[in-house]
Design a protein around this nucleic acid. Sequence first.
DNA 1: TATGAATGAGACTTCATTCAT
DNA 2: AATGAATGAAGTCTCATTCAT
Lengths: 206, 206, 206, 206
Amino acid sequence: MEREAGSRRSPAKRAAIVRAALELFLDEGYARVSMDAIAARAGVGKQTVYSHFGNKERLFLAVVGEARTAASATPADASPPGRTGDPRADLQAVGERLLRVVLSPAVAALHRLTVAELTHHPELQESWRETSSDALLAEVADHLTAADRAGTLRVPDPLLAARQFVLLMATEGRVRSLHGTRPLSDAERRGIARESADLIVRAHRT
Amino acid sequence: MEREAGSRRSPAKRAAIVRAALELFLDEGYARVSMDAIAARAGVGKQTVYSHFGNKERLFLAVVGEARTAASATPADASPPGRTGDPRADLQAVGERLLRVVLSPAVAALHRLTVAELTHHPELQESWRETSSDALLAEVADHLTAADRAGTLRVPDPLLAARQFVLLMATEGRVRSLHGTRPLSDAERRGIARESADLIVRAHRT
Amino acid sequence: MEREAGSRRSPAKRAAIVRAALELFLDEGYARVSMDAIAARAGVGKQTVYSHFGNKERLFLAVVGEARTAASATPADASPPGRTGDPRADLQAVGERLLRVVLSPAVAALHRLTVAELTHHPELQESWRETSSDALLAEVADHLTAADRAGTLRVPDPLLAARQFVLLMATEGRVRSLHGTRPLSDAERRGIARESADLIVRAHRT
Amino acid sequence: MEREAGSRRSPAKRAAIVRAALELFLDEGYARVSMDAIAARAGVGKQTVYSHFGNKERLFLAVVGEARTAASATPADASPPGRTGDPRADLQAVGERLLRVVLSPAVAALHRLTVAELTHHPELQESWRETSSDALLAEVADHLTAADRAGTLRVPDPLLAARQFVLLMATEGRVRSLHGTRPLSDAERRGIARESADLIVRAHRT
DNA sequence: TATGAATGAGACTTCATTCAT
DNA sequence: AATGAATGAAGTCTCATTCAT
């Protein structure tokens, strides 16, 4: 029935359900996960799941929504490395951090899941954005703006350049890691970040 | 039972099954498609499906495999436009063709399906390669090599540059079209191709 | 737990529950109505329903019992039309009133519900009587007795005749209205009352 | 999927399902019967039930439809008693036969079930007719026509009179037997038939 | 007392697969 | 070889009832 706030429904159980559902959805995909399995893993009755979320689809959307939110918040936790003044090195550093996040098992699985279910749950499309992390995108743009001001690069449209950098690097990472399925070595990650940073820097050299 | 070649199994029925299965898998995803539905759409009995492919997973892998092969062969459908000598214009032209292919409903759906099922069918991973079209990649590399020889660009590693171009553009197209879920206007496609071509050309300007 | 009278249980809530339950049972039938739905429509908690009535069956019997009582009391709502002295006209007039009552949505639904659940709730059988309205039956008998006294008819057993009249007319009305499911026009009702009155009058003509 | 004629679906299993479903529906009512129970009693798998009838409602309608047909065909099996020439006796004899049919457990339960489910299955309404047996109605009308010709009665509208006779008698029988729930003694049945026949005969006496 | 969260059983329906024709 | 009827397990969701607040 899904009542309003103020109900006595246990937030702890809700959290357990969300966690269990997320793990299962990420591992198995939407259709392969049963409500029974979610309830069992969460350690609650099936009806508890239904009274919290109404049905499987709403549970799925809630879970994915919260996971997206969490994922967007996470990457900035690593302290942003200070600027060295060398745009190429700065970009590569940011890129390596981004790759670690994007290719982490959870984030990669969330990405696969979202792509997989895009056509079946139109609500997903509204929340869809390739760069799960606008914060990181802004950080890259900042670097480029700074370089432009310092005269080391000439970047007329820093946001576009940042987007191209992030998109290219993330995609290359996904392709090489079989969409996060196979772990990447540090060297591979570094290589990918270097190649992408190189392209961007060369394109905007003065 | 799956007999050897030379059996009396009808190739026409096999083709009908593959076609039906592909359509359904692309539309619904692996788990949501039933063998019943496949047999019905193919106009054959269920046992025929089983005798041809053994089980659902083998059918899926066969179908996706053939679809990938077909998709890789297709893109050259449009006669490759002659070179104009202007690298930017040439790249953009190739790019627009590529986008049309990559974002076509069938190719985009095949991509989503592959990503979705990557973890459940390890065999898929072996066939995985982002650029479904090596032919096109080679064509881009050719353009770049020609430009390098002509002295209009300086491209030390044409294959890398080509790959970056294709990857960036395809990804930008996918993001903007919600992974092929929403059609892109000609103008959008042109814009994406232009931006990507621009980046590559600027990065390799002499 | 069901406490005795004098408890602190609110009669207002009890009434709300009974009203809600009656509406739902009449619309859906016993098995299709959930205690959840009753509590929700009554605007009370589920446990309140249980503490008032113990379980679903007892609630049902109480509700139907009260509804039968109410229905039996109602029919005289319209002031009984004075006698005209013409037995046929009088009978027909009474009959039309009866039909309106018997085929009213609530009374018809109560009748269907009782018939439907007769075998599952033996207590219902005790309260069963076709003529939900003894008052009306007596009124018809009165008319006939009066006619007998006046010499316009010869009615040795007025109660039997009244019963036959009421039963035949009510049944004909039920059949033609699909057991109260389809509304009857005034003309139809009048026709049914006329035919039935005619039969009775002819059978007892002097 | 419910295919056309010519399929290989076993008619024996279909019949077993129909029989099992009818018994259960008559005993318990629509909502209380589970498809599991039907399959189990029929001795077939649940999917067999579904492949034959598609879903619970279609099964129900098919079962009720066939039962109605069967019930309509049955009553004439008892050899229609020859006419004695005494309309009252003839009518009473036909009436007793009718009562036996109408109050037989199966027919009475079918009637209760139909009334109970009338609002939930609109298709039922189309097949609804109080007199499950048009044959019997015709037989009564024949008696009355014959009497009219013989001059023993004056029956301007034999079909109306027959209908009134049948309706009144069946209803009285239903009321007295708690809608077929309680068996009626021979004497009761005879009494009901006599009273009804009496009414009709008196109404049409010359 | 009254609330509604929680439960375990069970509802209808569909699935991948096998069997009999 | 090919058909589709049949199966048993499992899917989503709802139920009457109880428990903790």
